[in-house]
Amino acid sequence: MMAAIIALTLLAVVFGLMLGFAAIRFKVEGDPLVDKIDALLPQTQCGQCSYPGCRPYAEAIAKGEADINQCPPGGETTIIALADLLDRDPKPLNPENGTVKPKMVAVIDEQRCIGCTLCIQACPVDAILGAAKHMHTVIESECTGCELCLPPCPVDCIDMVPLGQDILTWKWPYPEEAAPKPAVLEKAS
């Protein structure tokens, strides 16, 4: 009886020491988890996740305050990447935050723009150029399609247009296994 207690106590002490040693010796330096999460987010800065930008959302995820399925612009890809990083199960996008839409860019109707600069102040990535009383214009390559410039515009002159596809950006679609269809050939031409 005594021997067993002593043996178990000894074992516990030895293993405890080993674990303690391992915890110090093999300590993994605290990862900048927020940076890693932030790197996976699409940086649209649209706020649809209910946080004022991608980094605040990343911080919220890291703290465990926000779920990983709140980013509509990132869609499935981002959710899977986050799930992968955080070792969680992927889940479908939370519909409260919005739905997945095709990539869009803002275009200002230059006829209607009155040059109020409100959209310039709203743009999270400074992608709108212009000065007061002068027509504004969106730098297409910098626009993230966040739509934050739409509400402030007093004359409603900003439209979201889907990003066009050309042969340079086109990519092969995901194969349709159920019914492999050949390319439709327009016979009448």
């Binding site: 699409p42 940086q43 800065q45 991608c54 999270p124 990535v125 400074d126 992608a127 993230t144 679609p173």
Partner: peptide, 23 residues
């Protein structure tokens, strides 16, 4: 498909990095 997706992802990543820097 996978190659195209990887290229697109890289392009988007680049764009996201630019957006992050700009933001």
């Amino acid at each position: 498909y996978a190659k195209g997706d990887i290229w697109t992802r890289e392009r988007e990543k680049e764009k996201a990095d630019i957006a992050r820097r700009r933001h």
